[in-house]
Amino acid sequence: MPGHVTKTRIVLAALVLAGLASPAAADHPWPSAATLRAWSGVWTGQNLQQQLQQQPQQAIGSALRAPVNDRRFPPELANLLRPKYRAAWEKFKSVAETEPPTPDNNCLPFAMPGESVTTNFGQVFHITPRVIGILIEIDAQMRLVHMDVDHPKDLKPSMHGHSVGHWEGDTLVIDTIGFDPRSQFNDGITHSDKLHVVERYRLVGDGREMEKTFVFTDPEAFTGPYTIVRRVHKDDEPFQEYLNAQNNREYPCPTAEAGSAYKPVE
């Protein structure tokens, strides 16, 4: 057997075995413990000057880009809506003058994608070897990001969707699918069960700021991908329990007996 064939076999076998031993982590090494410790604390946009900054004109295909730190979903997103979803959004605006009919106003989880994009409320990253827990102050919600694994094949749709993550250098990349169509962008913009969200989180500046980039793709609801960038900072205030259900008056909360009557505006 020629020598180069043998070497090729050895390398191929090693790669296969390495893949079995540590499937995706082998492709995406983790940052050092010292780097990860810098992610501690509560991250929030509160009290940060919410100046609108135009993004540099980086090309992400033909994707629209939203300004940094615009707390709400910019109207440009509506330009991407396909007719059925645009009509639902127009109808939502007409009925949403006081308490908008959103999941959180009906005591459902505030939920992805709105919860992560909104910067007012604190987020705490629990970085552990198998799962990263993102605790979100509004409605005391938890997202679990399963690290270095694939999405399961038989996903049950849920308000937070199913998230898997990996590290690219010092950037945490989260891929989420499997959304319950009742979850929504927080301005009444809805989506289908085909919504796919890719998030990229990285520390910037002196390490007390975090940049969060979201790319939303939903071929059924949007004509193209949509990118939003947010910046939050490390806050010294502690995490607080904040529950919409405590204050709800306008809209009914679900009950253990009857479930939820909430439906997005259609």
Partner: peptide, 27 residues
């Protein structure tokens, strides 16, 4: 030769896993 290949592959495999698959615990 095949046995040698597998042994070398296993050694390489452990090397890859140790270098690239480490997930540091912070606690």
């Amino acid at each position: 030769m095949i046995r040698v290949s597998i042994a070398l592959a296993a050694v390489l495999c452990l090397g890859f896993a140790a270098a690239a698959g480490a997930r540091p615990s912070l606690v």
